[in-house]
Design a protein around this nucleic acid. Structure first.
Lengths: 138, 138
DNA sequence: TATTGTTATACTCTATAACTATA
DNA sequence: TATAGTTATAGAGTATAACAATA
């Protein structure tokens, strides 16, 4: 448990370093990550991120100002805006994805199949147990 | 990797739920956690939490307002204040510690010694690899 | 009438810089 | 002169509530 926390904290700290370098923030990176699936309305983003629509307005404002996304008119619903990555934003998203893949490879790529499978199995079990504990406590 | 992230996110969400219930916040809980070792100056808290002294002022203000801590005069340095848990704050800290222990027990208590040791070993290895990757990238 | 996004307002976390009181 | 903590100021994330435009 302590070790899980330690790893999680270490990853967070490294993320913070990356954020400082890139001028992005955790919430804006998460929003960009959601856009990897394609242009999206703010309502959809709010639902996907588990955050209020008002909050998404602010995050998108910031990403527009930094040139990562634009608000394009929705083709069929004139109330809605399609949050769309710019070329620069798309490049950032690709970079995020590749960093993530590299990290996974660097951390686990060397493990023998059997150890990796065993590790995943314990993680699956832990996730399931955690879900059950949360459910029982409600 | 995805599973590690999933677990970490699940734990964060549950933390957020607890925070909402208790009226505390992540940063204030972290500060209380630091106080488990005993009353401490704000400078020490800032260093331990990796945060600015000004920030600690605000967090302590909040915890004073909610009745979790008080600022007591430092016995030898009249510039400094000792952030000290109240009875209620001490109860909260004890509750945090016991919840944490219960969670660890609920998640991993059932695992056979061998599986647990194997899991820890992979985690240790992952933490070490992560540290090395971060170091190399600097 | 319901939904999308924004304006208005407020709280928290965070930081830097300047200042006061004390060492 | 150096340190502990606060005031001043600022930016970001978050929320609710009220409102405009559109469905």
């Amino acid at each position: 448990m302590d070790k899980l926390m330690a790893l999680s904290i270490a990853i967070s700290k490294d993320m913070a370093r990356y954020e400082k370098e890139s001028g992005l923030t955790t919430a804006r990176i998460q929003l960009l990550w959601e856009l990897a699936g394609g242009a999206t309305t703010q309502q959809q983003l709010a639902a996907a991120m588990g955050v209020s629509p008002r909050n998404v307005t602010g995050l998108v404002d910031g990403l527009v100002a930094s040139g990562h996304v634009t608000r394009e008119p929705h083709p069929t619903d004139r109330r809605a805006a399609l949050v769309t990555p710019t070329d620069s934003g798309a490049a950032t998203i690709a970079e995020l994805q590749s960093s993530y893949a590299d990290l996974a490879q660097g951390l686990f790529g060397h493990l023998e199949q059997r150890r990796l499978a065993e590790f995943e199995s314990v993680l699956d079990d832990t996730i399931a147990r955690f879900a059950k504990l949360v459910e029982d406590s409600l």
